[in-house]
């Protein structure tokens, strides 16, 4: 057994145990780790934002750039400054401007991108090709998948009563959904256990030196 003499390994080990103590119940050790975590991460986030976003996207083009279009950046700065309106009761509504721009930009992006990235890809993946029917087993499997896709979509059909054929299809859709959720769940269990093994290795190997 070779207990680590590195103080940083000790700190990491103590924090690891402090987080795990949460599984028993809330306690001062967890609270300590939680508050330290939040403080560190928000400081880290501020530094990342400053150096990865503000400096390259705002400061560098404005201070060192030569392109005349760089002055357009003053517009988002102005919009961004409006969000400080929330510090005043009278002008708190100014925040609606940055919100309106962000949401408009998002909505504009998402419409064409959703078609390209989600819908087309899913449709072309579902339509059976020759390769997908190469053997009877493959053909049956892909047919089952096709039924899975269609019945699931009917479950998300909102504007009609789920009765008759639509009702039966939506009901089948729920069964398919549950089977799929189960598969995802089962698939993830082992991956999560391996995370724990990783932490245990740190504690027992890096820190306490019990295992090699």
């Amino acid at each position: 057994m070779h207990i680590s003499t590195n103080p940083w390994v000790w700190i990491a080990a103590i924090l690891t145990l402090a987080i795990y103590s949460f599984l028993y119940k809330d306690n001062p050790f967890y609270k300590f780790a939680e508050h330290l975590f939040m403080g560190l991460s928000i400081g880290y986030g501020a530094v990342v934002l400053w150096y990865n976003s503000i400096i390259p996207r705002l400061w560098n083009p404005l201070a060192h750039g030569t392109s005349p279009s760089r002055f357009y950046l003053l517009i988002p700065i102005a919009i961004g400054l409006l969000s400080f309106g929330i510090f005043s009761k009278k002008y708190s509504w100014l925040i609606k401007y940055p919100l309106a721009f962000s949401v408009g930009a998002y909505a504009g992006f998402s419409i064409p991108v959703t078609f390209e990235a989600s819908i087309f890809e899913q449709i072309s993946g579902t339509i059976l090709t020759k390769q997908m029917m190469a053997t009877p087993w493959l053909a049956i499997s892909n047919l089952i998948m096709f039924v899975g896709v269609i019945t699931t979509i009917t479950y998300f059909y909102f504007s009609k009563h789920h009765k008759g054929l639509l009702g039966k299809s939506a009901r089948t859709g729920i069964v398919f959904l549950m089977l799929a959720f189960g598969a995802s769940f089962g698939y993830t269990v082992m991956a999560r256990i391996s995370l724990l093994i990783g932490r245990m290795q740190f504690l027992l190997h890096d820190w306490l030196g019990i295992i090699k």
Binding site: D26, A33, E34, F37, M38, L40, S41, I42, G45
Partner: peptide, 19 residues
């Protein structure tokens, strides 16, 4: 606002829930 870090946020929300 809690934090812009995935597990920092998780730790914070969990702490609030149990308290």
């Amino acid at each position: 606002y809690l934090t812009y870090e995935q597990f920092g946020y998780t730790a914070g929300v969990d702490g609030l829930m149990v308290r």
